[in-house]
């Protein structure tokens, strides 16, 4: 099975890897690039734990092949903080106790960041529907929704 050379941008850094065409972008991020912050919860696009953005669009990295990543710009949870400075969503998630086990957290943070970039003032309902594909089994979502709403408010204030 011949591998394909892929050159792409991940978290603003140029990277390259060799991908078997059957490997998903998630496999490539985790196994070839050592970026294990994106998680696999289902492998079928039903849980959102592997959420990343590709050229600014939110996707499930388990539903994209690694070989499709050439020439794209990919953002993962590892690129969310700027150096030591956490994104407001990251801070608010800690502050609001918006996770228990933390496994779904990277995907939810990536998805929520993408929402707030598109819609800085989402309603609670909009947040809930946007995140409907991000399963969390620990929290019942309450504190997650509050953290996102609170981060949005803070970001609006700062803007």
């Amino acid at each position: 099975m011949s591998k394909i050379h892929v050159q792409t941008i991940v978290n603003r850094d140029p990277v390259e890897f060799l991908a078997d065409p059957r490997e998903t972008l998630l496999d490539c991020l985790r196994d070839h690039l050592g970026l294990t912050g994106s998680k696999e919860g289902c492998g079928t696009g039903d849980c959102g734990a592997c959420s990343v953005t590709v050229d600014g669009t939110l996707i499930s990295s388990c539903l994209m092949l690694g070989v499709e990543a050439g020439g794209k710009s990919i953002e993962t949870i590892e690129g969310m903080a700027q150096g030591e400075d956490l994104h407001p969503l990251q801070r608010k998630f800690i502050e609001h106790a918006a996770f228990q086990c933390g496994y779904c957290t990277p995907g939810i943070l990536v998805a929520a960041k993408n929402l707030l970039e598109k819609n800085p003032s989402p309603t609670e309902t909009e947040v809930r529907y946007w995140l409907a594909g991000n399963l969390c089994r620990c929290t019942g979502y309450d504190k997650i929704i509050r953290a996102v709403m609170d981060a949005a408010e803070e970001m609006r204030g700062a803007a």
Binding site: T76, E78, I94, F99, G102
Partner: peptide, 8 residues
């Protein structure tokens, strides 16, 4: 463990 869990 908050920081570890929000940064992946």
């Amino acid at each position: 463990d908050g920081l570890d869990k929000v940064t992946g």
